[in-house]
Design a binder for these strands. Structure first.
Length: 609
RNA sequence: GCACCCGUAGCUCAAUGGAUAGAGCAUUGGUCUUCGGAACCAAGGGUUAGAGGUUCGAGUCCUCUCGGGUGUACCA
């Protein structure tokens, strides 16, 4: 039994259609919340489409639906006056029915339908690389991925988070080689920081990228023997360290203990920092969620052999590829030199996630720019049969929940002034520092410890909410001032609403006032009540669409409704005790919905600010 | 070249094919005997890039054009 009026009305109008027009039974009743309050709270738009299929005038169809619909228990009676325009049927809930529905959602879990019950979903998120600080490039994957995981869990899915760590391959071998050199030169690897590793990574990369093209140019344009000699030396150096890195890579692949010890140290340093940053962002990612590329290394050769033997893969221009319908570029799974690629690993990951972890659904929270890659890999995995659970009818659902870039105010990718990627820890530090300055000014009465807690919560909430509140696939402009503003659609505004409602509850309990029977009279009370009833439906729509900004919009509107209520409908000094008790009950319910929604979004709750 | 994404108020963003396209910021003007004013209420501001088409009905779906972004076999 649902307590969502939208669901109830949809059922009732489906029945009305079936009884008034048996030949059209099963048609979509098209019930929705009205955009404009003057049209009532809900509307049924089915008459217009039915008119077409039935060959009858839409208003006649609407009349028939109005007399067939049995909704007297929750809505004001329908009449011809309820029909507007070409055949819209406008519906207004009865206040007492509203109260009844509200009572229902105060119980258990708000009447949220557990659409994911018995199903497993894998969420791919975070995606850090060894020997690199987390930067803005990881921000959205962590934040959005974590929220999607929370939403899916909230609607009943068994959620498995997977952090596809970039911990394998030649670049990592280069760093490992560098680290071994440093240790040989007397460096204590127990005292290693991620910053040190990143420095090693950079120097390895610079060496590897040494200008072979530059050398060719020098020779071509005849810039003289001196320039050529310099560059030749560089290139020779690069080739030497590249050769060494390839040797280390072979050692790693054969699990040679010394190389593995250094590699493991890099893993530990990187992952400790990653998990710390995630924890600070209130993103649930721990060591147990790590499923790095290295963990698939052993599977790749047999996997490719399997694909080849079954004719899924074919040789092409010296490489091995999987061709898929509808995409011109084939999916390359083995290079001419015999090495595997990230596509190979991703196909192996799909196989493990579906066939071993039992995923009915796999969601990749990865940059939109990898869209083509995932289309190829998904199609290849489906073609290979890897995306189908043993015994299942068809393949599991593979979804790329891609997201746009983070831009600066200039509309270009968000970078530091010197053009580097912005470290996540620096980003959070700045947001928290800015929040602290505001808190210091507006709430000097808070203890230093409380102030720190509030600043941390507000700063992180600001960053996360800014990221979540606009359409996932679009780029968004990162702006501290805007995201930290206390008015408008921001994290701090939501937390402020939470704090206000909690303060009322706190004072009420100190004054011995208890929540009582709800009665809905003022328009602000009704608006607030109607908003709360929408919560379960919004969660389901996010679980379906994978668009967290719908939950954000909902929350913002809920907070705005509450603020209007707060302004117009005093609680603790309302005229009568009954009114106090009723409004207090509304506050208590608001607090529960707000807290649940914020938690599902991944935003930490606070009591004061 | 081809493929994908995007184009909505001055700015940042919304809008399951539904009625007069909505918020916030900024601008202008109101509200206070403050359950915390970090608030609330209101006004102005739009050819939804453009042109066709489908539909009872299009910001939304289809085609084309313009503009921006991204990706395009052997990096991840």
């Amino acid at each position: 039994m649902s307590f969502d009026p939208l669901v109830i009305l949809t059922e009732r109008f489906a029945q009305a259609i079936a009884s008034a027009f048996p030949q059209a039974a099963g048609a979509d009743p098209m019930v929705s919340a009205s955009r404009n309050p003057k049209f009532g709270e809900f509307q049924c738009n089915a008459a217009m489409t039915l008119a077409k299929t039935l060959g009858q005038p839409p208003r006649e169809v609407a009349k028939a639906l109005v007399s067939a619909a049995k909704i007297a228990d929750i809505a004001e009676p329908l009449s011809e006056a309820s029909i507007a325009g070409p055949g819209f049927i406008n519906i207004t809930l009865r206040p007492d029915a509203l109260v009844g529905l509200l009572k229902s959602i105060t119980t258990e879990d708000f009447g949220i339908e557990r659409v994911g019950a018995g199903k497993t979903v894998v969420v791919d998120l975070c995606g850090v690389n060894l020997a690199k600080e987390m930067h803005v490039g990881h921000l959205r994957s962590c934040i959005i991925g974590d929220t999607l995981a929370r939403v899916l869990a909230r609607v009943g899915y068994a959620v498995i988070r997977q952090n596809h760590v970039g911990d394998w391959g030649l670049p990592i071998a280069m760093v490992t080689a560098k680290l071994m050199d440093a240790a040989a030169a007397g460096r204590d690897i127990a005292e290693l920081s991620l910053d040190d590793l990143e420095t090693l990574y950079r120097s390895a990369k610079v060496e590897a990228d040494a200008d072979t093209r530059g050398l060719a140019a020098v020779r071509r344009f005849g810039l003289g023997p001196k320039a050529a000699a310099e560059l030749e030396e560089q290139v020779a150096g690069a080739e030497e360290s590249l050769t060494r890195a390839k040797r280390v890579l072979l050692d790693l692949q054969s699990h040679e203990p010394t190389a593995m010890r250094f590699w493991q140290r890099i893993v530990d340093v990187t992952m400790d920092a990653c998990i710390k940053t995630c924890a600070r962002l209130n993103v649930i990612v721990t060591r147990e969620h790590s499923a790095g590329e290295s963990s698939y290394a052993e599977e790749l050769a047999p996997l490719v052999a399997d694909l080849l033997s079954r004719g899924v893969a074919e040789a092409s221009e010296g490489a091995l590829v999987v061709r898929v319908d509808g995409i011109d570029e084939p999916c390359i799974i083995r290079k001419t030199d015999g090495a595997f690629l990230y596509a190979t690993t991703d196909i192996a990951a799909i196989r493990r996630r579906v066939q071993k972890l039992g995923a009915d659904r796999v969601i990749y929270c990865v940059d939109q720019r990898q869209g083509l890659h995932f289309r190829q890999v998904f199609a290849a995995a489906v073609k290979a049969g890897y995306a189908t659970r043993p015994g299942a009818q068809g393949p599991s659902e593979l979804q790329h929940a891609g997201f746009g870039m983070v831009l600066g105010d200039d509309g270009r990718p968000f970078k530091t002034r010197s053009g580097d990627n912005v470290k996540l820890s620096d980003l959070v530090d700045e947001a928290v520092e800015r929040a602290r300055r505001v808190v210091q000014e507006t709430s000097p009465e808070l203890s230093p410890a409380a102030r720190d807690r509030v600043a941390e919560a507000v700063g992180v909430a600001a960053i996360k909410y800014a990221d979540l509140s606009s359409d996932r696939v679009k780029d968004y402009v990162f702006n501290f001032d805007r995201m930290l503003a206390f008015q408008g659609n921001t994290g701090p505004y939501l937390l402020y609403a939470l704090v206000r409602v909690r303060q009322i509850l706190h004072k009420a309990s100190k004054a011995g006032i208890s929540p009582g029977a709800i009665s809905i009279a003022a328009s602000e009370e009704k608006t607030l009540a109607l908003h709360m009833l929408r919560y379960p439906g919004v969660l389901l729509s996010v679980a379906q669409s994978l668009e967290p900004h719908r939950l954000c919009t909902y929350l913002y509107e809920l907070c705005a409704s509450f603020s209007a209520f707060y302004d117009k409908c005093h609680v603790l000094n309302a005229e009568t005790d009954a009114l106090k008790a009723s409004r207090l009950a509304l506050c208590a319910l608001t607090e529960r919905v707000l807290a649940d929604a914020l938690t599902t979004l991944g935003i930490k709750l606070i009591d004061q600010m």
